[in-house]
């Protein structure tokens, strides 16, 4: 099951040229671009691990793309996303976030039902991949 988080996630995967164009747009708006990765893509897992520092004062997407390629090389079977942070007063938040790398096989999530007091049901999501193996090996083929 293909995970749909962030922008463009219902589209086919972006090519590197398209990713660079999006990053260029972010840089034109003077947003700081950062790369994050994880192998626990639960929708409530907000904070992924950062790849290096957020990149400030960049003029061109080439710098981000080279970092992205380095990250892909280290974590080919992880989810990797690009975040663009707007530091303008009043915004001070992530303005654009999109996935740029995903594992070749995404087993998806299942619904977990937990029965509580009075036979009430609590529902939650559980990733097959996360439950299967420990961190770092979850999506290894």
């Amino acid at each position: 099951m293909r995970i749909t988080q962030g922008a463009f996630s219902f589209l086919p995967d972006l090519t590197d040229t398209q990713i660079a164009a999006q990053i260029d747009y972010c840089l034109r708006n003077q947003w700081a671009v950062a790369i994050e990765f994880t192998d626990d893509p639960h929708p409530r897992n907000t904070y992924w691990s950062m790849w290096g520092h957020p990149m400030f004062d960049l003029q061109d997407a080439a710098g981000v793309i080279s970092e992205l390629n380095a990250c892909r090389q280290s974590y080919p079977q992880h989810y990797i996303r690009v975040n663009a942070f707007d530091a303008t007063a009043g915004w001070e938040s992530v303005r654009l976030s999109f996935i740029v790398n995903r594992p070749s096989d995404e087993p998806g999530f299942r619904v977990v039902r937990r029965e509580g007091i009075g036979r009430t049901l609590h529902y939650t999501l559980e990733s097959y991949a996360v439950g299967r193996r420990p961190e770092g090996e979850r999506y290894a083929t």
Partner: peptide, 14 residues
């Protein structure tokens, strides 16, 4: 290494 790479990234495209 991070310092040099940071400068290089800033200079990319120029």
């Amino acid at each position: 290494a991070p310092k040099t790479k940071d400068v290089l990234k800033r200079a990319m495209g120029g």
